[in-house]
Simulated assay, not measured.
Amino acid sequence: MTIIKTNNSGWATVRHVGYFCLLLLAEQLPLTGLSFASAIVGTQQTQLTYVLGSLFLIISILITILFWQVYRKAVTDNNNEFEQRLHKRDWLLVAAGFITMLLINTATIPFVKTSGNANVDSLTSLLQSFTFFMLLFVAFIGPILEEILFRGLFLNWFFPHRRWLSIGLSSVIFGTFHVDLSSGQVDPIYWLSKILLGLVLALVYSRTKNLKASITLHILNNTLAALV
């Protein structure tokens, strides 16, 4: 994989860590804001639900545009990888990744706790209250944001010359990002399943050298999960 030309100085690393943390917080703003607003005003009022949901999508789209601009600048020296079309081999890798994800989900879901998972419970509650808006976010906007952050930026910013270390760390951080550590009751199977899904996404991105491949795969996985 062609790696972007980055300054390997300690300052560059510190700067990238700072950017990554800020973007990580920004990615959580829409869901956090929607959860907070719905808890205060409730969601029984139809008009207010539409207003909150619309505002949620607008903010999410604006943050996606911000992420995209950061990513575009980060890969300027990487042959503008996103502008390259997906070839037959890339689609085969996406298909193989999707099958692998199905196997991971099939193997882990029966062992995942059905209750007590704060992260899942929160998303389920928002899906019930803001179904249309949350489906758009979970199926499309969320995958784009997470792929830019955990694959497009992380794999190019951190340990670019030690690919397996970068892939491994991004997968663990991705999996940890999807559990609620504050609850003190992390479901290890659920956590492991997200790490494995992150690993598949990272491998597909690394192999195809195109973020469109991992975004497509992430959208397929999330869409299927939202529908079932």
Score class of each variant (00 low, 15 high):
residue 205 Y to S: 04
residue 21 C to G: 10
residue 146 E to F: 06
residue 118 A to P: 02
residue 25 L to V: 15
residue 127 L to A: 09
residue 225 A to V: 14
residue 19 Y to G: 15
residue 219 I to Q: 00
residue 110 P to M: 03
residue 78 N to C: 15
residue 218 H to A: 02
residue 72 R to G: 08
residue 98 F to A: 06
residue 136 L to F: 10
residue 210 N to Y: 01
residue 37 A to V: 15
residue 1 M to I: 15
residue 13 T to C: 10
residue 117 N to T: 01
residue 153 L to D: 03
residue 39 A to V: 09
residue 125 S to A: 11
residue 114 T to K: 13
residue 49 T to M: 13
residue 190 Y to H: 12
residue 203 L to Q: 09
residue 6 T to W: 08
residue 165 L to M: 10
residue 125 S to W: 03
residue 106 T to H: 10
residue 215 I to V: 11
residue 205 Y to C: 04
residue 69 Q to D: 11
residue 217 L to T: 00
residue 81 E to S: 11
residue 156 N to L: 08
residue 10 G to L: 12
residue 111 F to D: 05
residue 63 I to H: 01
residue 123 L to H: 07
residue 100 T to R: 03
residue 149 L to Q: 03
residue 4 I to D: 10
residue 25 L to G: 13
residue 216 T to C: 06
residue 1 M to N: 14
residue 192 L to E: 03
residue 43 T to I: 13
residue 131 T to N: 13
residue 217 L to Y: 00
residue 51 V to M: 14
residue 166 S to W: 04
residue 164 W to G: 11
residue 68 W to F: 15
residue 63 I to C: 06
residue 116 G to H: 01
residue 198 G to S: 07
residue 143 P to Q: 01
residue 143 P to S: 05
residue 134 M to H: 01
residue 51 V to F: 15
residue 65 I to P: 05
residue 104 I to A: 05
residue 170 S to N: 07
residue 111 F to W: 13
residue 151 R to H: 08
residue 202 A to C: 08
residue 16 H to S: 15
residue 166 S to I: 06
residue 180 D to W: 03
residue 149 L to P: 02
residue 222 N to G: 08
residue 20 F to S: 06
residue 117 N to V: 04
residue 187 D to P: 04
residue 90 D to I: 00
residue 1 M to A: 15
residue 54 S to D: 08
